[in-house]
Computed example of a mutant assay.
Amino acid sequence: MLQMITLHPVASNVVNLYESFEHKGQTCLAFEILDRDLIQLLGDRQYKPLSLNEIPPIAQQLLTAFVALKGISVIHADLKLDNVMLINQENQPFRVKLIDFGLALHNSEVTTGLTVQALGYRAAEVILGLPFTEAIGMCGVGCVLAELFLTCYLFGTGYEYQKMMNIVDVLGQPDEHVLNAGIYTDKFFKANWH
């Protein structure tokens, strides 16, 4: 997947793959050196939330990365705090890059019911078993930004059922046509014809 991603690493905020090679039957990847991930940043700050001035630059860079990926029909499918790395926090505060394309897939590879994304960042359409696109990354971005501000998961991480309950509590129940289209909807909702 990384060899398919031919994006400008600076303009797209995506990690730069320098080369890949085989060594003793293993594929090795050489990336640019980055500083630390966002979980480490929070740990360095004793899990004190980022301020409202510190979050927008991260948001803008993540959105730029996802727009670039959408342009080549790639779904990252694994956005979480440890897959966003600071370039150099001392010299370029809050300059980040998106990393870890191990679960990334092309739009054409999506099948209905495919489970992707870590549970704490999983989009409702994935949970319900709906067809999805790279737009699921926006749920991940929202969850990452909320976690930086709240220092906890926005919708929890326990079980999918609990996560869906939390999504409904915060955002409301999905529309009926959405629920009817989901192949896993009956795990979370019961039809009430009245």
Rank of each mutant, 00 (worst) to 15 (best):
V74M: 15
L119V: 01
M4I: 11
M138L: 15
Q60F: 15
P131L: 00
L119C: 03
N16M: 10
N91W: 03
V74K: 10
S73W: 10
Q60M: 14
V116L: 08
I127A: 12
T111R: 12
Q26V: 01
A146I: 03
T115V: 15
V67D: 13
F31T: 02
S51Q: 08
D44Y: 13
L7Q: 04
E134Q: 03
N53W: 15
V14Y: 08
S20V: 12
C28G: 00
L130N: 06
L128G: 10
L38P: 12
N88W: 01
L148T: 02
D37P: 14
L130I: 03
V67N: 10
S12G: 04
E134G: 05
H106P: 01
G25M: 02
E19V: 09
P57G: 14
Q46F: 13
V141K: 05
N53Q: 15
N16Y: 14
T112N: 05
H23A: 05
F94S: 07
L145T: 09
I75Y: 01
V116N: 00
L50N: 05
L79F: 09
Q46N: 15
L41E: 11
V144K: 07
A11L: 08
L38F: 11
G43N: 15
E109R: 07
L103E: 08
L29R: 05
C139D: 05
L29W: 10
M4L: 11
N88R: 09
E109F: 02
T64I: 14
E147G: 00
I58T: 07
G120C: 01
P9H: 01
N83E: 08
A104S: 09
I72S: 05
T6E: 04
H23M: 10
V67R: 09
T112E: 10
A77K: 09
A104I: 01
L86E: 06
V15T: 07
I72L: 01
G71N: 04
Q26R: 15
L128W: 04
A11D: 09
S108I: 06
T133F: 11
A77M: 10
N88M: 05
Q60N: 12
M1N: 13
Y18A: 01
Q117S: 14
Q60I: 15
H23Y: 14
A68R: 09
L105R: 11
Q61K: 10
L148S: 00
F132P: 04
A124G: 10
N83G: 08
Y47V: 11
L62P: 05
N91L: 14
E22S: 07
F21G: 09
P56E: 11
E54M: 03
I72H: 03
N107V: 09
R122V: 00
N16Q: 15
V15I: 02
A124I: 14
L69V: 05
A68S: 03
A124W: 09
T111I: 13
M85H: 03
I33T: 13
H106F: 06
C143P: 04
I5P: 05
V141N: 06
D100G: 12
L7F: 01
V84G: 12
A123Q: 06
E134Y: 06
P93T: 01
H8S: 11
M138Q: 13
